[in-house]
Amino acid sequence: MQGFVRVGERPEIAQLPLFREMDDAKRERVFAGSFLQVFPPQLTLFELGQHADFLHVLVDGVVELSATSGGRETTMRIVEPVTSFILAAVVNDLPYLMTARTLEPSRILLVPAALIREVIRQDTALMQATMHELALAYRDLVRALVDMKLRQSAERLGNYLLQQDFRQSAKGVVQLKAEKRVLASLLGMTPENLSRAFSMLSAHGVRVEGSTISIIDRDALNAFARPDPIPV
């Protein structure tokens, strides 16, 4: 693990969307009190119900956000770089509503919550960037709810693959960022249902080779999955 953000790391971190437009002096104040750490896979970063002591910004790696109720657990989001996660809890000084766990080695910037709240009040650019990230998170939530309510399981999987293709390269090859059991939970399925959904998609232009998914007939998949009319 690393301690405070080193001088050589600061130019890279300064270019992250949340900090890019900030006043230089206020940005340096944030960095002086923050930590850039490398975490191993399968490490719990925080748990549901814990008070939000830090803002987490994922620089490299993959993080799973999950929720539990009545002894059941479900994946709520798979976080990929570069973004903060559970920003709302930090801004509102409230407990986390989800548990965060690394899925692969991950480099994460930890900013003390009290510090980020203080600087948000002082720096207009940071305030605007915070509003932007919160708005994107809200839109992602709406998309997820629409997906769950209006699509069957295989259609949800097809739509997810089209979204990932758009985000990764738009070249028709998707690399899954998490184990299939985590993906199944994210999409509201059992692992068995996910396997059946992949089999069904083979008739609609999808080929599966381990964690590599190829979209070999985009028109067929679009017709089946009915992707969102508004791009991601």
Rank of each mutant, 00 (worst) to 15 (best):
L65V: 02
R101E: 12
G205W: 11
F4C: 12
Q128S: 03
L97I: 08
L201N: 07
G205T: 14
L194C: 05
V5E: 05
L48W: 06
A220E: 11
A154E: 05
R107S: 13
A25N: 06
G33H: 04
A113P: 13
L43Y: 13
R6M: 07
L194G: 01
T68V: 12
P17S: 13
E192S: 04
R151D: 05
V59I: 04
F198W: 15
V7M: 14
L157C: 07
P81A: 11
S202T: 01
Q2T: 09
P191V: 00
E133K: 02
F35S: 07
A184E: 01
M98H: 06
L134G: 11
L161T: 07
V63R: 05
F224T: 08
Y96T: 09
V30D: 04
R72V: 10
L157Q: 11
S66G: 01
A220M: 12
M76T: 03
L48Q: 06
L134S: 11
G71I: 07
A184Q: 02
L145E: 13
E104L: 08
G71F: 10
A135D: 06
A137C: 11
G61H: 13
L58N: 04
P81W: 15
E155V: 07
V38K: 00
D217V: 07
S69R: 07
Y138I: 03
V142G: 05
R139S: 07
M200R: 08
L136G: 10
Q37H: 00
E12H: 12
